[in-house]
Amino acid sequence: MISELLINAFLVTVMLAIAIALLKTRTVIFTVILTSAYSLVAALMFITLDAVDVAFTEASVGAGISTILFLAAMAYLPKKEEENFSNQFLPALSCIILGAILIWCSYDLPEIGLISSPIHQHIVPDYILGSRNDIGIPNIVTSVLASYRGYDTFGETIVVFTAGVAVLVLLQNNKKNPKNTKSKINKIDKKVG
């Protein structure tokens, strides 16, 4: 099954190329397009790694909705990023250190695709069995998502809700009639004294 790994390695390399292009570019529209492409390739990568649900979500949420939001926001923003090379040493250094730590620890990470590693042996067999017998739903991801870890999903719904309310509050503030607001404020002032 080396071909699987080869496909993965190829896709990761493509993603690296996109990321490097992202580092270089200073045009906003190109940045957005590249981000979209990055998400698209990431979604393909998720499919090759057997995560069909994640690919589905990444394609629709990551590549679709985020891109559209970026575009919608872009309409009101400057189209170019200013070139600015000052003060990049410290961030670069800290990133390199963190990356080095991660690469250093990859020595002890479980080998990709090894069925005997603890991550595949501990809880997951119960999920697979339970999904077949207790819940009776073929899609294990759905059964884990909605039942075993249903509370996570509840939290996630609330996160989306929070973001929605927050954005509504933030972006509607501007559109009010200023006259109206002022009179109200005066009223409050008077009330309080």
């Binding site: 979604a43 069909v52 690919a55 589905f56 394609a59 629709s60 590549a63 679709g64 559209i68």
Partner: peptide, 12 residues
């Protein structure tokens, strides 16, 4: 997934 992909591609 492929259908969604095509859809998102179009809308994007």
């Amino acid at each position: 997934i492929a259908i969604v992909y095509a859809l998102i591609n179009f809308i994007g």
